[in-house]
Write a protein that binds this DNA or RNA. Structure first.
Length: 498
RNA sequence: GUCCCCUUCGUCUAGAGGCCUAGGACACCGGGUUUUCAUCCCGGCAACGGGGGUUCGAAACCCCCAGGGGACGCCA
């Protein structure tokens, strides 16, 4: 049997997600258990959304959890580079092979035409996909369009009938009719590959033997297998893991749950506990023990023992486990040191001190004033929000709109936060001072504290989101109907400010 | 709408035809320890989605139904 090589291939387009860590954990355990290698590849072919910061955050988060890799963009390796944006020459040469063999073809259709096509297909209740329009062009027409530089993409051909049958390590045989498979775009008009193309090319050249990924990929597996077949490459073995879920069973999302690994770090969870908890999602130790390290999990790992029901990510059980780790695995010295490292992170403290120094007369004033920087969720009840200036409905509205606005910021800093608040306040016709009242309470638990804008920028989006959401819940929550109205409001507002 | 995947206590799960009167853990409820609280200990509540088969025997195997989820982008 060939050497086992697995990978995690995150896209640096947002916060480091617990789902990424979850899949990384299982890939790593499987590879190491078989004496193989686990590698990290960055899939940054989406130029618009990929950022260097997100990449760094993802690497930091995986390292924090102890999910180290043996090859990756930060440490190199024999299949370097490990960042897709640095591999475009490879994709360009590989696509020529498919173009030459006729397995791929240029497509000149506009986004508008495709959108209209999709709408029509939905209305006619038939399966949605490209209609092959550009396959009807003659060679001359294609050559003419190409030479005159008409913007185009490259799509793959797909069999018109029959089934694609493949084997999933956990689910057995899966059969999907080719008619369900779209003529996937392989190269975008910006010349960069799509996920499907880059992923297959890289997995091949990086000698990935087992593709362990989320269930959401099952339906696109036929596209990937077809590419392997077109290239004449050996296919990896596929394993589709269940998806982590919200309490309502939908796919885990940040709207409903804290999904950023940074949140768990900032809330003071131990990385061992978080990764242990992820290991309990869909998997158990053979002896049923619930407290185990990545090493113990690796030793006892058996991918076929993964259960397929989508596990609900239940923070109550994580809390219990984390408490157990603190009580049972940390000496007093460990506790002191780790708590101090957590509480006095240099990047954070340097922001807090200037806010606090001018407002205290004794050191003993510091904790009452700024203790909220170290708290999880402040203790709140409805009366916390009582004041003469803004009523409870307005409070909820302010909090929700601010949260959405903060989530849409490209850079999470003081200036950006301030201008968000100022503009929403103006939009609502509320004086900025009154507007900030509910935010003060949501963030600090009090009406009087250090500047709320600075506090938000220091606490970061993960903790801010949790606190604002907590405050909204205390105020009775927001119904779907209200949320829709507010979203509309936000859109109108966004248009006005553009 | 089309296709795909899934289904054991509220939640995470054990379960590979008889060890199942379905086990463990979290949560919850009760009791004990503790000057309080927490920890810790003891106890309790609570599930095989429904219907058909196969079999001497089904939570487990097969079929149908229902429910849940996912995919259907020049995102990944």
């Amino acid at each position: 049997m060939q050497k086992v090589r697995t990978r995690i291939a995150p896209s640096p387009t947002g916060d480091p997600h617990v789902g990424t860590a979850y899949i990384a954990l299982f890939n790593r355990c499987f590879a190491h258990q078989h004496g193989g290698e686990f590698i990290l590849r960055i899939e940054d072919t989406d130029q618009l959304r990929s950022t260097a910061k997100s990449e760094k955050d993802i690497l930091d988060a995986l390292n924090w959890l102890g999910l180290s890799w043996s090859e990756g963009p930060d440490i190199g390796g024999r299949c370097a580079p490990y960042r897709q944006s640095q591999r475009s020459a490879l994709y360009s040469s590989e696509i020529l092979k498919l173009l030459d063999s006729g397995h791929a073809f240029p497509c000149f259709c506009t986004t508008d035409r495709l959108q209209e096509l999709r709408t029509r297909q939905m209305e006619n209740k038939i399966s949605v996909g490209y209609d092959g329009h550009c396959l009807t062009l003659t060679e001359e027409q294609v050559a003419q369009k190409l030479s005159s530089g008409v913007e185009h993409v490259i799509r793959m051909r797909v069999p018109e009938s029959g089934d694609c049958v493949f084997n999933d390590m956990l689910r057995g045989e899966i059969r999907i009719n080719w008619q369900q498979i779209d003529m996937q775009v392989l190269i975008k008009s910006d010349g960069l590959p799509t996920y499907h193309f880059a992923n297959v090319v890289d997995d091949h050249y990086m000698e990935i033997s087992h593709v362990i990924r989320g269930e959401e990929w099952i339906n696109s597996t036929p596209k990937h297998l077809l590419l392997y077949q077109y290239f004449g490459w050996e296919t990896p073995i596929y394993c589709h893991m269940p998806l982590l879920r919200n309490t309502d069973k939908s796919k885990l999302s940040k709207r409903k749950n804290p999904t950023s690994i940074g949140y768990y770090r900032d809330m003071g969870y131990l990385p061992q506990a978080v990764v242990n908890y992820l290991g309990m999602m869909g998997w158990t130790m053979p002896d049923g023990s619930e407290m185990f390290s990545v090493e113990e999990m690796t030793t006892n790992f058996d991918l076929s023992r993964v259960s397929l029901g989508g596990p609900v990510f239940d923070i109550a059980k994580l809390d219990w486990l984390n408490g157990k780790y603190i009580r049972e695995t940390l000496s007093d010295d460990d506790f002191l040191q780790q708590f101090a490292n957590w509480a006095f992170r240099p990047d954070r403290v340097s922001g807090v001190i200037p806010l606090v120094k001018n407002r205290v007369e004794r050191f003993s004033d510091v904790v009452p004033l700024a203790g909220f920087f170290l708290c999880g969720l402040p203790e709140l009840n409805e009366t916390s929000f009582d004041n003469k200036k803004v009523n409870m409905d307005e409070c909820r509205k302010i909090l929700q709109l601010t949260l959405w606005q903060l989530e849409s910021l490209h850079e999470f800093n003081r200036t950006a936060i301030e201008s968000s608040c100022v503009s929403i306040a103006a939009h609502l016709g509320i004086k900025i001072r009154d507007f900030l009242l509910p935010l003060f309470v949501a963030i600090s638990g009090k009406e009087i504290s250090t500047s709320v804008i600075d506090s938000i920028s220091i606490l970061g989006l993960d903790i801010t989101r949790a606190r604002i959401r907590h405050a909204i819940n205390v105020l009775g929550g927001i119904s779907n109907k209200e949320a829709k109205e507010l979203e509309k409001d936000l859109r109108d507002f966004a248009q006005k400010t553009e």
